[in-house]
Nucleic acid binder design. Structure first.
Lengths: 165, 165, 165, 165
DNA sequence: TTTT
DNA sequence: TTTT
């Protein structure tokens, strides 16, 4: 049924990208969502609290992460909440919950996302894409150069480029 | 950038389905989201208020609507908010805001939605899918019989079956 | 920043309710979101997959859970994703991710959720509310009887009835 | 039931703020969500398309708009979709759909939102707040100076400061 | 026009 | 552990 996470936050560290034999890519990174501190009505001080989310991005979103996401980047992420179990080094069963990204949108000005001067300062427009509309061809995606930043990408590549999971 | 509506409500009237020459289908129906009445702290009675949303569903979602959605059906809908202008019969320019559905999920028990054998097996409902997961082949979709109700459907059919809009 | 989960699924087991000295309540239960099985284009069968979410509901939402949520109930839940760490019986540090509910909406027909007279009239459910609209006075809430089911509730009780967390 | 819009986009013009006799404020502004252009698989070029949303923000969110939102500001907005009817100058009945904001989050770097040099460049943190958690006292909100930017605000002020609508 |  |  419906399993959706919607996050806006900042990336904690540069993404780790792995490639598989079948040329598929996956990116892992963490995203912080921070709640501001505040006082309750009775004067109690509630401190700021940061929640860290483990983000997993496959296929085109992994390439987006590789090219445009780094420590500190502000992102909108939409994805599915998934918990997987694994045995740690001591054979203890553990659980890890991850957000498997369906949509990633880079936020802030172009200058926030790339410090280079290759982004024409007069460009200004806000390109965008949608998760369900007809998808641009893969060839279009990977050709995206720095002057045509894919600041939004959805993960609807279909089965043909499916993955080892 | 991000343009998303998330609605849970009840269908006001049976959907209207139209077919185009290229075999594409579109369904239109209205969805009510009702806020309950309540009293403010100073005792003021705020009456119940119903908001009516114009829903547009294309392709497989139109067929889902045709086969499984009727007056009173409770739905979860995810879509995009779009406003279009048109000239009415008197040539006055008017605006209409619609929710173009990306995901429709039938809610409630099966007995609420169906339970009867009145759904023709050739009706061609489509199987559940998620917006980003690999999509089942079209051939699989049309083989879906009435005993395997597609209570969730997303609209990610891709460009090849795109539409006159 | 933004940390939001949106779920539609079925409750796995009757909620567990705990009361604290200060009369506050918390409910814990699990919610299943099931993705249907499907075939990829190359014929691979992807089996059905169920994700289990640990739901935590405080205050009025805990009472809603106590009175109206049971094994099998279909729910819409909106909440925050929170991960907490704890040491298990063997002193091993573990992590648990939970959805702390902000909004719970009972889905399906009334007959799915109730219809019976088994809900104690003194149970004190709370009326529907929205997270941002003016909130009904507390006195109104506790007068709610069983014949006026609060099928929607949001958790915006404010600081004065805050909690040991 | 559930009526939620989630938008990320850019403000089209400086907000208009109006104050009422009872000291309440409302802000109106438009927000653009732009879909990128793309090519369909059969080579058809789908042009970029911008959707304009009419945003209405009450109370504290109106003050946030007054102080921190201007033409070009990038925002995350969560709200309710509401359609109201009115008679235009010619007595023709018209409809206008608006997004009544519940949550507004300023996006991008601090320097994006305020060009002044009063924001210490070393500050860097991203304060935040949540829609359902206990709310900071009003006095805290209105004292927010430029060095403590309220880049996130939710509209849960309660009935006592309710409004002429 | 739905639903509660 | 739910539901379909």
């Amino acid at each position: 049924m419906i399993n959706k996470a919607i996050l806006v936050g900042n990336v904690g560290r540069d993404p780790e990208i792995r490639y598989f034999d079948n040329d598929q890519a996956v990116a892992n990174f963490s995203l912080a969502t921070t709640e501001r501190s505040f006082k309750t009505r009775d004067g109690q001080e509630i401190p700021e609290r940061t929640e860290w989310h483990n983000i997993v991005a496959w296929r085109g979103l992994a390439k987006l992460a590789e090219n445009y996401i780094k420590k500190g980047t502000q992102l909108y992420i939409e994805g599915k909440i998934k918990t997987r179990s694994y045995d740690d080094a001591n054979g203890v069963k553990k659980y890890a919950t991850e957000i498997v990204a369906d949509v990633i949108q880079l936020l802030g000005r172009k200058s926030d996302n790339d410090g280079s001067s290759t982004y024409p300062s007069q460009s200004g427009g806000q390109p965008a894409s949608t998760s369900s509309a007809p998808r641009p061809p893969e060839s279009n995606k990977v050709q995206n150069g720095p002057d045509k930043q894919p600041d939004f990408l959805s993960d609807d590549n279909g089965p043909e480029d499916d993955l080892p999971f």
